[in-house]
Design a protein around this nucleic acid. Structure first.
Lengths: 207, 207
DNA sequence: TTCTGTGAATCACTTCACAGCG
DNA sequence: CGCTGTGAAGTGATTCACAGAA
């Protein structure tokens, strides 16, 4: 299914809806209304209805949305109905935290291969994955079929690593290095920079 | 200095400008133009000029911005001209990665106190900070003068921890738990959820 | 010239308000 | 009734296009 003209912001919110709906399902709620979600997520119910309506008429007037069905639909829209293999580069602080982070699996994300260039790390096992020599990156990532790459190396190597991941057919990169990556069109980069987030926050602290 | 009617998006971008300007200063560039920044950050130069002009006329026509001066101005706008103490709760995978993460210090963020409820962690030192019993949270956070709290506990305790941090006079919370926090008005919450980011990314992978 | 600062125009997203269906 | 789905109105952010200063 190909959708068009969907606001980026809608896509940003869908995973939040899904997360909440899954929680409600766990507490045995069968129906979810836009009001329920809006209350829980602190937003406007019309926003939620509009977001969902881009993809079809999932709701029942007077009732709301069937929770199971809605969760299924959102998973399908987001491409979450199969496992996504990932390749991690850089098994330092952040890298090892990600390798042992259980949150990925629940949504079908799985780190299949991990790399570092530090001798002492190569061959060790972290979170069930054996760390390989970064020299093997292209070959091993391609073999693993990973379409997602995680860059968790120091910023001076981030660009080079990103390029090599792209060569290994990665379609998206999650970048933890505080630097902008140049990648070919069609490859998406998502930046995670906590320091930047903190900077934004403290701006609002002036009284 | 109090500014008004500044778009939120402008505030989101200022730290990115600052990060890049700092890099350019390091490579001895004395002047920065909106075009330079726009090229490096992949954005429209008019956007950058407009963002900066909200806060004053920092540039020189025909020349650009004085790099040092601009960095100083942005740091001042963002409230980065003094150190911000932080309190971390939850010394698990993410928590310990944060305690040893060197990126905070460069911008003046410093984790002063850390807590966990697990006996075996209390008293141990991670990244130069001694882990305290979570029972001491309110007292110790208040004493440390931390205005920023980091929630890195499992989601079922996140809400409780957040409330206790607010009680200890924290003005902002960085939440790593995949759950929405209810906090009193005036307390800002920033959510970091990598799984959610990945979900967004793979939406765009359908061909 | 070159590059900033900025009104005006455009674009993108949100919210309102209500028709329509169960 | 209650809640969805949706045009229309409203809001906010981006980009254009150019006047004006060095």
């Amino acid at each position: 299914m190909i959708y068009s003209d969907i606001p980026q912001e809608t896509i940003r919110r869908l995973p939040l809806y899904l997360r909440r709906i899954d929680q409600l399902i766990k507490s045995d709620q069968e129906h979810v209304s836009s009001q329920d979600l809006a209350r829980d997520l602190r937003m406007n119910p019309a926003q939620i209805r509009k977001d969902l309506a881009y993809f079809g008429d999932f709701g029942t007037r007077g009732v709301g949305y069937d929770a199971e069905r809605l969760a299924r639909e959102i998973r399908s829209i987001l491409n979450l109905d199969h496992t996504w293999n990932m390749a991690l580069v850089g098994v330092g602080n952040i890298g090892s935290a990600l390798l042992t982070y259980p949150g990925f699996e629940r949504r079908g994300f799985k780190v299949r291969v991990a790399f570092d260039k530090r001798e002492e790390l190569i061959g060790t096992e972290v979170g069930g994955v054996t760390v390989e020599d970064e020299a093997r990156l292209e070959q091993s990532v391609t073999e693993s079929g990973s379409k997602l790459g995680i860059v968790a190396v120091p910023s001076h190597s981030a660009q080079e690593v990103a390029q090599r991941l792209v060569k290994a057919n990665v379609k998206g990169i999650l970048n933890f290095a505080p630097t902008i990556l140049n990648v070919s069109d069609g490859v998406r980069v998502t930046y995670v920079d906590i320091t930047t987030e903190l900077c934004q926050m403290v701006y609002y602290f002036q009284e």
